[in-house]
């Protein structure tokens, strides 16, 4: 079972790096979109306030929680492979 622990530790470390990179990237993309939207419409309100509010909405959104799939998908994949190799 030590091998399982080792795999989980390494996998968790690697996936955490991927998760952090992906969430920073996704937030930057959202910020750029909000800024472009304000620049096009010149409103509503102040530019900084508009972007800030948009990002706060993004923080509570489902799209952001979907990035957790970085952990969930490999876990499901491993479970599927274990089932197919040993029990199917």
């Amino acid at each position: 079972m030590l091998g399982a622990l080792r795999l989980m530790a390494i996998g968790f470390a690697v996936l955490t790096v991927v998760y952090i990179c992906l969430s920073l990237y996704s937030r930057a993309v959202r910020r750029a979109k909000l800024e472009a939207e304000w620049d096009r419409d010149q409103g509503p309100g102040e530019r900084d306030g508009f972007v800030h509010q948009g990002l706060e909405e993004y923080d509570g959104s489902l799209r952001r929680k979907l990035i957790l799939g970085v952990y969930v998908v490999p876990l499901c994949l491993v479970a599927l492979i274990i089932y197919l190799t040993n029990f199917a």
């Binding site: 091998g3 399982a4 080792r6 795999l7 491993v78 492979i81 274990i82 190799t85 040993n86 029990f87």
Partner: peptide, 15 residues
């Protein structure tokens, strides 16, 4: 292969 590379996760050698 157990939990090691390559990731076949084969545990059913005896079977």
């Amino acid at each position: 292969t157990g939990w090691h590379w390559p990731p076949y996760f084969k545990f059913d050698t005896a079977n």
